[in-house]
Design a protein around this nucleic acid. Structure first.
Lengths: 236, 236
DNA sequence: CGCGTAAAGTCTACAGTGTAGAGAGTTGTT
DNA sequence: AACAACTCTCTACACTGTAGACTTTACGCG
């Protein structure tokens, strides 16, 4: 394994011109592997075999670097704004985003947190693209723009909420087979948390996929009632 | 204003026995005023007129301190698990939590993020209490425990999602009265983000309260269909 | 009162952080 | 070959969390 200078991935392969993409990919790898706190300038520099300061050519800040990571992850999400079946498309996107979150659990905190510290218009374009595309999808399906925004909000709100929920209940110690123990519920005072403890087994059988899908059904049917659906324009 | 030793609040009033509550309150104040990053051990120590190291008597870590802050905020939330009208109760809780989030916007990242790094059973009890109490509410209303859990998930997921949404769209510069400018949308390339830019005025008129309430209506009516409601036990 | 014990608070020190500023090295164009 | 522009490195500084030993304070008991 003495690759001289070509392949950029790997711990410290020396000498290969950096680029924003290379830097961000390495950053993402690091976050995936060891969490957000492990992403320090020095560490990332070491991972790339470069001086930490060189990173500042590709990201103004550590914060900007974190933004870059979220951007990178959101780029994995494909949206087809021209799909005529908007409900099916929303369902698919939701499931894709869920899988994305499960694939990059350490990035989720960034995904939900970074936008809170950056006004909408100043966010990295990559993170705004899904919003724009879903608006396009809904407007294309016949929703009035303002209604499309409402649908988007309900949809994305619910979706992010679900993802947070699911990741919070992540299995702790899969080797342990008593649900109460596996989830650490034994620590809870039984007097104060009777129902939570009793639900141990149910909590352990969490199936995020069906839970998400049921939630979407609720949401979409509710939306149909509330907004009385899109008003398609007649063909010319 | 030369209060000698009694009132514990204020910048550096010297000499007044610390306590977990005093420490956490000061921490919350600091986070509210200047954001999470401003909450360093040294800074908090200074704020309390004590050596930074003294804080470690009341929180094992900086992380534990952050957990304490979230706990403190969630304690402001009142839940009445015995209310027979569970829908009304869920609505009220939702609006209360929303207001809480608006009152402590800098704490919201902690609220949604901290649980992701701590397995359910090991979280501070204060943060689990709402969960337990809402389960009690729903079970008391006649839901089977497992169904109560589903309702809780859909509800809390939606609720957190809404809060994230609303805080993300927070007004940036209220003095500016062109929505496009105020939200920073002018930076977006018009070709790539036409709908988002066009929605500037609508975005500016965001009313989180009605948005939340409409969402709750959708959710609750959807839940009624999906689960066919609670099954109240007959009175003895 | 005074003593003794435990808790509360402090001091010092260390390894690690982000990043400003100036310099060295490399690359591509004329 | 010479210039300019870009990329990368070095050094330095102020600041972070926190381990460990120490000093001060508070309080119960004879």
């Amino acid at each position: 394994m003495a690759s001289p200078k070509n392949i950029p991935s790997g711990p410290a392969p020396r000498k290969a011109r950096l680029s924003r993409d290379v830097v961000l990919s390495a950053a993402l790898e690091l976050v995936d592997a060891e969490g957000v706190d492990a992403l320090t300038m020095r560490r990332l520099g070491q991972e790339l075999g470069r001086d930490p300061m060189s990173l500042y050519r590709y990201a103004a800040n550590r914060a900007a670097l974190l933004d870059g990571v979220t951007e990178m992850v959101l780029n994995e999400l494909a949206i087809f704004p021209d799909d005529p079946d908007w409900q099916a498309q929303l369902r698919r996107i939701a499931h894709d985003l869920r899988l994305l979150a499960l694939r990059h659990p350490n990035v989720v905190p960034l995904l939900v947190t970074r936008p809170l510290s950056t006004p909408l218009g100043l966010r990295p374009l990559g993170t705004l693209r899904p919003l724009e595309q879903i608006l396009a999808l809904l407007i294309g399906a016949g929703f009035a723009p303002a209604d499309a925004l409402h649908v988007y909000r309900a949809y994305y709100g619910f979706l992010y909420g679900h993802i947070l929920n699911e990741l919070q209940e992540y299995i702790v110690d899969p080797d342990e087979n008593e649900a109460i123990l596996r989830l650490g519920l034994h620590r809870l005072p039984a007097k104060e948390f009777p129902r939570l403890r009793a639900l141990g087994p149910v909590l352990a059988e969490y199936d995020g996929e069906v839970e998400l899908d049921q939630g979407l059904s609720i949401l979409l049917s509710g939306l149909a009632i509330q907004l009385s659906g899109p008003h398609p324009k007649p063909l010319p």
